[in-house]
Design a protein around this nucleic acid. Structure first.
Lengths: 117, 117
DNA sequence: CTAATATATGAGCACTTATTCATATGTTAG
DNA sequence: CTAACATATGAATAAGTGCTCATATATTAG
């Protein structure tokens, strides 16, 4: 017995069952949404856009973004955990750059889409 | 005087200024992140994936997703507000389908990326 | 008309998230 | 060693999100 009492009785049961059967499993849906969620924030979008143009250290990112160092650092950790961004240490400064071609693809594709529209 | 006392004094001031100057404005960053945010949820991912295969009415979507009608309806409104999904009314039932080729592109691209990896 | 069915919507709530503040860690200069 | 600088991190908090529940609206059948 289903919690929501969801049973089939619609007009095209075959198609419904077919779609239901071929639907993304929870893990895939989670992976996918996790990836998109990373791009679902203006600050992270700006960070990615900046790094798309040039590798930058944390301080320079705060200058570029006009934000506090802590906020930038938190977001960089977030992006690094998802392997969207990578670090390179040089003395006491840490340089960040993009680490995922797929993300760059998504980003550029969407940027183009929003531009000519 | 900046709120965070962010001033330039890094190693490559020219590049920083260049990146800062070419950075996405707030409106563009907001548009972009808004779009990605729509894909940043497992339920919406599943809805889009289902509709990628076939137009479906609300009840059938609840069957496919195994979720309550209200939750599905709320998410459909969300997706419809962003023109990701469109309605077609037929009597008392409402059929939903995808309404944005770009979203489909992003979706399929990412799906492929996650599959063979 | 009323009842039944399909969808939509507002309020409430638990949970998440993005920032700030304070502080910790790491690195180099002197 | 200490001071100064660069980055990282934990706690706190305000805002946002996704679901449920109850109810509203719309359409059709009888």
């Amino acid at each position: 017995m289903d919690k929501h009492e969801i049973t089939d009785e619609g007009g095209s049961p075959e198609i419904v069952l077919q779609v239901k059967d071929g639907l993304l499993d929870d893990r895939s849906a989670a992976s996918m949404s996790e990836l998109f969620k990373a791009l679902g924030d203006p600050t992270r979008i700006k960070i990615i856009h900046a790094l798309l143009q040039h590798e930058l250290n944390v301080h320079d990112l705060t200058v570029v973004l006009g934000m506090g160092q802590s906020a930038v650092s938190h977001q960089l950790r977030y992006l690094r955990n998802l392997r969207i961004v990578k670090r390179r240490k040089e003395g006491k400064t840490v340089y960040y750059s993009l680490d995922d071609n797929h993300i760059e693809q998504l980003f550029v594709l969407t940027l183009q889409h929003l531009e000519h529209d």
